[in-house]
Design a protein around this nucleic acid. Structure first.
Length: 423
RNA sequence: GGAGAAAUGGCAGAGUGGUCGAAUGCACCGGUCUUGAAAACCGGCGAGGGUCACACCUCCGGGGGUUCGAAUCCCUCUUUCUCCGCCA
């Protein structure tokens, strides 16, 4: 959520910046400003009314104490009007504030100046590429064929138990998956992150805090009996741990990592691009979340990007890094780098990580602040990134490491799997 | 799931209808003393809105009510603790 005080002072900057997202902000920002003005003037009026009735109440108290009951009763009569007026004003204030909030929820974050203008993923900017695309033998297979051939993942079984998009991992498939999770966590801990285990269901407030609600309501599974949501990413519980907190400067930066399954309804997805592990309703992911001082956030973003690069280098997977264009940038993000692994057998890039700086967009909603050296309270910057999302890494490994003898296990994983070949 | 008790500032903990945003202690920050530190002493120290700055307003778990006036009384929800039941 954008900060109204800033909008008030820099409306034109906001309008221009949001154009990169193809978001026409002029009129909506004007509405925001006028609602905010109304809000403030209503607040002032209410304050004055309350001040007056507070004064009278005090007077009444004093009069009763000194035994002047008659006088007191007379003053009492004056309070009725004030009471009614303040009731009206506070109702108006609530309505205006609510309206203002609803409006603010619909405005996306302003993109960082380095974000290229653009319509969709076609316009993303490739900023880095590494690794040779392996030349595979004749008859190499996509991962869903490999998963079947070596009995690693059973999609049919998942259909039976739950439905499409809930695969069952078996044998060496399950162990490879577990190895990857442990390896990712270890890498993150080594880089200074603290590991957490967090709830997989969250309340409505948490959903709003990180911006899944109301924007992506349909994306989350909703447990209606208890009004809870299955997390679409551990970003939600991780970031919400700090909701409403006023941190000490020395506590920053806060770096968390967690492994969790993620649940996404992915309503409306279908076709070849969702085959196999490409898109699932339940998948595993290891996530990074950073809370930092504003002046440090872009350096932190760079560090996160380097960290993910490092992991992919370890795994010897060919990958590229994209700077997302305005049209493809997530609602809450100011700058996002996507990582994609090249799937040789599918002959396409698969997104496996997304690393973003949200600046104050989340922290403003979440009210996560810290006291700086001067004792002034400031919103922290929040960042997150996947390191990494499991299914597509799994797909990439299966497809790129296939040989005539079977699927080799990347060297760094062997200590975790306990085997070096799947055959 | 049943019975009872509780929820106050970073923490502990007073406060049961009026001058209470809230005693006191600890923690924290600044100062005096000291070569330095500790101790002692002095001062400061919750959050949000609003203002150039004050003023002023709001907040004692959340919501609602009674009252001229609520941390304090009533209703309701949530959470925590104790006892019982069930259980990985």
């Amino acid at each position: 959520m954008l900060q109204v005080a800033h909008i008030r002072e820099n409306k034109e900057v906001y309008v221009q910046a949001l154009k990169k997202r193809n978001f026409e902000a002029e009129s909506i920002l004007e509405q925001v400003i006028s609602l905010d003005e109304e809000r403030r003037s209503t607040q002032t009026e209410l304050d004055n009314t309350l001040a007056e009735s507070n004064k009278l109440s005090k007077e009444i108290g004093l009069l009763f104490k000194s035994g002047e009951h008659e006088k007191a009763n007379k003053v009492k009569e004056q309070t009725g009007d004030l009471k009614e007026k303040s009731k009206e004003l506070s109702e108006k204030l609530n309505a205006v504030s609510e309206q203002l909030n609803q409006l603010l929820y619909t405005i996306p974050n302003i993109p960082h100046e380095s974000v290229p203008a653009g319509k969709d993923e076609e316009d993303n900017e490739e900023v880095y590429k590494e690794g040779d695309v392996p030349v595979l033998a004749e008859g190499s297979l996509p991962h869903w064929e490999l998963a079947k051939k070596y009995d690693l993942i059973d999609f049919e079984l998942g259909n039976k138990i739950t439905g499409a998009g809930f695969p069952v991992y078996k044998g060496k498939g399950a162990r490879l998956q577990r190895a990857l999770i442990t390896y990712f966590l270890d890498k993150n801990i080594e880089a200074g992150y603290t590991e957490y285990q967090v709830p997989l269901v969250v309340n409505e407030e948490s959903g709003y805090g990180t911006g899944q609600l109301p924007d992506k309501e349909g994306q989350m599974y909703h447990v209606q009996n208890d009004d809870l949501y299955l997390i679409p990413t551990s970003e939600v519980p991780l970031t919400n741990m700090f909701r409403g907190d006023l941190l000490e400067e020395k506590q920053l930066p806060i770096s968390c990592t967690a492994f969790t399954p993620c649940f996404r309804r992915e309503a409306g997805s279908y076709g070849a691009h969702v085959r196999g592990l490409n898109r699932l309703h339940q998948f595993d992911k290891v996530e990074l979340v950073n809370l930092v001082k504003p002046e440090d956030s872009y350096a932190t973003l760079d560090k996160m990007v380097e960290h993910v690069k490092d992991i992919l280098k370890d795994l010897k997977l060919p990958y590229r890094v994209l700077r997302l264009c305005g049209g493809d940038l997530g609602f809450t993000s100011a700058l996002t780098f996507d990582f994609e692994v090249f799937s040789t057998a599918q002959d396409r890039w698969l997104e496996i990580s997304s690393v973003s700086n949200f600046e104050t967009f989340q922290s403003n909603r979440l009210k996560v602040r810290y006291k700086n050296k001067e004792g002034k309270k400031e919103l922290v910057h929040t960042l997150n990134g996947s390191s990494l999302a499991l299914p597509r890494v799994m797909a990439g490994i299966l497809e790129n490491y296939q040989t005539e003898d079977g699927i080799k296990v990347p060297e760094v994983l062997v200590p975790y799997t306990g085997f070096d070949l799947i055959n």
